[in-house]
Nucleic acid binder design. Structure first.
Lengths: 193, 193
DNA sequence: TCAGTCATGGCACGTCGTGTCATCACTATC
DNA sequence: GATAGTGATGACACGACGTGCCATGACTGA
């Protein structure tokens, strides 16, 4: 495990987020982060592929967890049923271990920097690809699989945004279900307006 | 207009796309691009904010065109009606002036490079933001506006992908309408599966 | 005690992107 | 036709990013 001072990775994440919020992402240099964490620049890039990744550590496993959850679901469920019944509980476990305060601070940093926003979009794109493959593995045709995956991720993304805007007040599963209900209402009402 | 040799911007775009396809985005340096275009490195960054932008020039105007089109639509149309009736014709004019061959080559370059894929996602995010604001300006509530905007962009994005995969065979408006129909079918069928 | 392993430090280097100033072609005005 | 202005380009220096390579030092196991 950790030799020297343990928790180097966590110290880097903490220092980076603090500095991003204090002076901005662009204005923060990697040497500044490593100095605050008591390490060197070379070590930073051994833990994170680039400066942005320090805010996205640990999220590489999400796609494979998505695939596992979908494989465990009853095969009788259609894609839309799977979304409406499985999305909320599955989403809840994604943020386990991260405090609401951390999530809010992290989101403030991301919102302030287009480069980080792009990385966030890539995360959702990877989630969508995993969902799409999961649907195909359940026998769903290509177009429907892609549509269902994109719809699920869109609902998830909007719900997380709303949930954080409300400081976590209605919990995430409830917010997701509200969002899905609003989406159903929007697409099912022949002439909304 | 253009002094010296006119069309510097176009020469840079052409040289960059060729080189990206020949040897990859990362392996292509800016001096290589400018050498082929007969210019210098400094000039490249006067035309494009960074190395990726050379493939996304001219798309900054899309959001404002979206806003203009939405403002011109009959106020009686609800958000979902506006999407199903207005998305296909509006989308057709976005690619005007670009040959199908160019679009296919450009997409091959983007698909091969995650950094370019991220930039592509940002483009759609900006389109969605413009649509969302347009819906709000028409009196739609925040959540519905966001949902409608994301759904429209998702349908547009999937349709464009399918359209290019089929080398433009059914034209883009037809592909969009097919995609929207599939989405309606997916979300409106109570138990699909 | 000794060898192996692994995170870290240190250094050099290529590329990206920017700030700054000089240059040169074209244009307008007198 | 001479002259000043405008705008795109060239040239140079520089800081930051990210990587390759090798050295070091602490911990583990025999």
């Amino acid at each position: 495990m950790g030799r020297w001072q343990p928790g180097a990775r966590e110290r880097l994440e903490q220092a980076a987020l603090d500095l991003f919020l204090e002076q901005g992402f662009t204005e923060t240099t990697v040497p500044q982060i490593t100095a605050r964490a008591g390490l060197t620049t070379r070590t930073f890039f051994r833990h994170f592929a680039d400066k942005r990744e320090v805010l996205f550590a640990g999220e590489e496993s999400v796609p494979e967890r998505v695939a596992r959850l979908m494989a465990q679901a009853p095969p009788s469920l259609g894609p839309m049923e799977l979304i409406t019944e499985g999305l909320a509980p599955a989403a809840a476990e994604i943020f386990q271990g991260r405090s609401l305060d951390y999530l809010l601070r992290r989101r403030a940093a991301i919102d302030a920097e287009p480069a980080l926003h792009e990385r966030e979009l890539r995360k959702f794109s990877l989630m969508s690809a995993a969902l799409e493959q999961g649907f195909r593995d359940r026998g769903v045709d290509d177009l429907t699989a892609q549509l269902a995956a994109e719809i699920a991720v869109t609902a998830f993304r909007i719900a997380v945004t709303r949930w954080l805007n409300q400081h976590g007040d209605p919990d995430l599963p409830a917010t997701i279900n509200q969002t899905l209900a609003a989406m159903r209402h929007l697409t099912n009402t022949p002439s909304l307006g």
